[in-house]
């Protein structure tokens, strides 16, 4: 069974002049880590909100097509039901902190679902370990850094034991330390948790480390969808669409477009070092 299945999905906000999503068709398997990239206001957040049910249940507009997450038809279900399968982490670390202490914020979701206190306690135990927030439980939000707050936000979303985790630009308001904390956590989630992850981000250097697949959302349509190596080999096309490449990939692309000297455009710093060192020592 596909974890997320989108069939010919169209969405227009009530106040919008045109459709924000135009016939989205895609499938995501269980355990896949998919990164969604593209210019701002081209549908990335809109697609995320369709996956967690905010669209169409919390927004007014027109929807067409089908969307299923973990077997639930999002269009004909309700947000609380979907929330047991889909966890959401948003951009702003402050607005996701809706209670007075870290532990209160983490247990907020399960409490809303009527989960027993014993079960909630068990979840808090394992989640704080995973997100490295054990020492922060009694802290108030003004005692936490941005990175810590976002880790709490991730723990709070995971407290609902979802099968899918959606993160919409989770690091764009964080400083470099915070960004590193969040991406390390995503790496741990990928290795240890059995989650399907959908990440919207502009940080290409990090995306290539974790994503199984990268999807370009441009003007409401999926224009490109491929594993990172293949995705980032389309240098001109991506530049045209306003999507930057990881710098090392761009270097490979500019240096050797036809790949006569390199086997592939390097994606990471390490592979770039190896590739270019070879060029400098052996000429290939």
């Amino acid at each position: 069974m596909k974890m997320i299945q989108v069939q010919d999905l169209w969405w227009k906000y009530e106040a919008g002049q045109q459709y924000a999503l135009k016939g989205i068709n895609t499938e995501i398997d269980k355990g896949e880590f998919v990164a969604i990239v593209g210019p701002n206001d081209h549908g990335k957040s809109t697609l995320c909100m369709c996956m967690n049910g905010l669209i169409p249940h919390a927004f007014r507009g027109e929807i067409k097509g089908n969307l299923e997450v973990a077997g639930i038809d999002t269009i004909h279900s309700d947000i609380p039901t979907i929330s047991t399968k889909v966890g959401t982490v948003l951009q702003n670390p402050e607005s996701q902190f809706v209670q007075m202490t870290v532990v209160d914020n983490i247990v907020f979701g399960p409490e809303n679902l009527g989960i027993s206190p014993e079960e909630i306690k068990r979840r808090v135990g394992s989640l704080t370990k995973l997100t490295r927030t054990e020492g922060l439980l009694e802290r108030t939000p003004d005692e936490l850094s941005g990175g810590q707050k976002q880790r709490v936000a991730i723990a709070s979303a995971l407290a609902m034991t979802p099968e899918i985790l959606i993160l919409d630009e989770p690091t764009s308001e964080l400083d470099p330390v915070g960004k590193t904390e969040v991406f390390s956590l995503l790496g741990r989630l990928k290795r240890e948790a059995n989650l399907t992850v959908v990440l919207v981000s502009h940080l290409m250097e990090e995306i290539v480390k974790y994503a199984d697949r990268v999807m370009l959302l441009y003007e409401g349509k999926i224009e490109l969808d491929a594993p990172p190596a293949e995705f980032f080999s389309n240098g001109d096309y991506l530049a045209d669409k306003g999507v930057e490449l990881p710098q090392v990939t761009e270097a490979g692309y500019l240096f050797d477009r036809s790949k006569r000297l390199l086997n592939a455009y390097p994606l990471t710093l390490e592979s770039a070092y190896n590739a270019f060192r070879n060029v400098l020592t052996e000429g290939r």
């Binding site: 270097a251 500019l254 710093l269 060192r277």
Partner: peptide, 30 residues
């Protein structure tokens, strides 16, 4: 952290690379 391309150029300092600030500069040096 310096930009990725600067870090790469620093790693290749044995080959006479100085710090390159952007990919264009890096590729020219390469």
């Amino acid at each position: 952290k310096p930009p990725q391309i600067a870090r790469l150029s620093l790693m290749l300092s044995d080959f006479g690379f100085g710090v390159t600030l952007n990919t264009k500069e890096f590729v020219e040096t390469l």
